[in-house]
Design a protein around this nucleic acid. Structure first.
Lengths: 210, 210
DNA sequence: TGTGTGTTGTGACTTCTTTCACAAAAAGGT
DNA sequence: ACCTTTTTGTGAAAGAAGTCACAACACACA
């Protein structure tokens, strides 16, 4: 029942893609169909599903219902995951838009911005609050995860406050490295790097490598 | 001179971090300093720098100026990389904000949205245009890269148009898989997956794994 | 000049991830 | 009942990425 980070990412994608289309109780999906959806190989899909103990059916594939459910038991905290968002700029708003009307496993329990002018404003249905309140909200809601969508300067300072307040995972959109205790997981989402990588790879800099 | 995708990502980060602080002609940086900045190991940094042929100096480290420059010759196209952005929602605006006032190696040459109401509007200094114009702009500007910041539905259709028009790399923010010819590079940036991954990993689901 | 300290460059090793390839299973036709 | 086809499950091999450990080097200071 060991699932590596890479496997977790792909499982998340499988589930999303399967959930997008409607399926009935008796629908099946083949490993090669999932593979095509994520531009991977069938063997890799089977390995991923093996990692969560899902077992398929020769000649018919995997039953979609139980598969989606099993991915859920791995990915979703049965208590729910409560998330605070810091930074209500364009990026923060984009994330709020993404979250709106999604499944209940992930819940935004507060949106914050250091700009007092933004406090009280409502974005995508979430009321933006002052940074003063953040420790209180994290404690009261028992938020485990934070989304850091601030500019680079000040990111570390905000991060320290989040960690101090009890957050154990951070999705970091700020183009800055974060220094955190070992017990805290940081997942970096780096837009500038993604762009530079694509710009670099489409030139024949190294055709053989991913 | 082989640089893997992972190495390219880290090089991009090293450069950004080094460029942020001012440095003089004779400033040096140690591998372990860079390592701390990206939460990696010194050996890994040295390997990365070895991959681009940068050589350091026992006891003093790496000269920052030449290092930044050498990373540039790997990452930056000397002709510049011209980029179109599709989707002027929150996310598209966030990306435009990021790009504004950055180095000249990457240039946004057009922003587009399928919503005719957005056409003509100016976002972060970029005028949003109608999708009708996109093929023309890509051809006229010889844009090589596209940023796809649309909702999931319709992403594939837009992608097909981009590829047909000559784009060779895509940064895909849409939570949908894209099917492209082999010659086109897609870099997926998946916000929902990043969140689910963090939410999963902070639970002790698999303490030993990244 | 010599000794001590701290850093690079890299071969060897370890660990993680993906792919290969094939036996076993199951469905369908005859 | 048997043969054909297609798919799963997985051991084994290959490949990629990261870490270790140490010789070689360079500076500092006596």
């Amino acid at each position: 029942m060991a699932a590596s980070g890479k496997t977790i990412e792909r499982l998340s994608v499988y589930r999303r893609l399967l959930s997008m289309r409607t399926f009935s109780e008796e629908d099946y999906v083949y490993s090669h169909e999932l593979a095509r959806m994520v531009s991977g190989t069938a063997a890799q899909v089977r390995r991923d599903l093996m990692a969560i103990g899902v077992t398929g059916h020769s000649k018919r594939g995997y039953r979609i219902g139980p598969l989606v459910e099993e991915i859920g038991t791995l990915l979703d905290d049965p208590e729910g995951t409560r998330i605070v968002l810091v930074g209500a700029g364009d990026l923060g708003r984009a994330v709020l838009g993404f979250m709106k009307g999604r499944s209940s496993a992930l819940t935004i329990v507060g949106a914050f911005d250091s700009d007092p002018a933004k406090a009280g404003r409502v974005v995508h249905g979430y009321r933006c609050r002052s940074m003063d309140e953040i420790e209180g909200v994290i404690a009261a809601e028992r938020a485990q995860v934070a989304i850091l969508a601030t500019p680079a300067d000040g990111a570390q300072e905000v991060c320290d406050r989040l960690v101090e307040a009890g957050v154990r995972g951070i999705v970091n959109f700020a183009p800055a490295p974060l220094i955190v205790p070992e017990a805290v997981w940081v997942e970096r989402v780096d837009i500038a790097t993604a762009l530079e990588k694509v710009a670099c790879l489409i030139r024949g800099v190294d055709e053989t490598t991913m």
